[in-house]
């Protein structure tokens, strides 16, 4: 009888890390529901192999929203199949991914505009209208 006959199933280490990410996401989503405060997991510092990453993408699924941000390079913010969990990839101007995170929020932090920006927008609108008067 060979060793393969011994009924021991060892979970690959890389999959264990991916499972841990799912568990942490669940905690963050619970917190979002309870307090309104979400959080994020930085995938750049996690030892995820391509197989573990593929497993994670598969488990999270794909949602309906995809946001493309052009600021210092392209970023994509993709809603996963688990509402409230966003897969965020930041790229630089050379198209290289510089950071990657899973963000838990109703709306990803980078998306809303600030009050100052809205005020600037209003000024611009008004100056455009002045030209029409």
């Amino acid at each position: 009888m060979g060793l393969e006959a011994i009924p021991v199933v060892v979970e690959p280490a890389d999959l264990a890390a991916a499972r841990a990410v799912l568990r942490e996401l669940a905690v963050l989503v619970e917190r979002l529901l309870a307090t309104g405060e979400g959080g994020a997991i930085d995938l750049g510092v996690l030892p995820l192999t391509p197989a573990a990453r593929a497993w994670l993408i598969d488990r999270l699924g794909r949602g309906e929203v995809e946001i493309r941000l052009t600021a210092g390079g392209q970023s994509t913010i993709t809603e996963t199949g688990c509402a409230g969990v966003w897969w965020v990839r930041h790229g630089n101007e050379a198209g290289v991914v510089t950071s990657e995170l899973l963000e838990v929020a109703y709306v990803p932090g980078l998306v809303p505009v600030s009050r100052a920006e809205v005020e600037n927008g209003l000024q611009r609108l008004n100056s455009g209208l002045d030209g029409l008067n």
Partner: peptide
Amino acid sequence: ISRRGFLKYCTM
């Protein structure tokens, strides 16, 4: 460089 661009840099 926009506010978002700077925030993105700090995230990195």
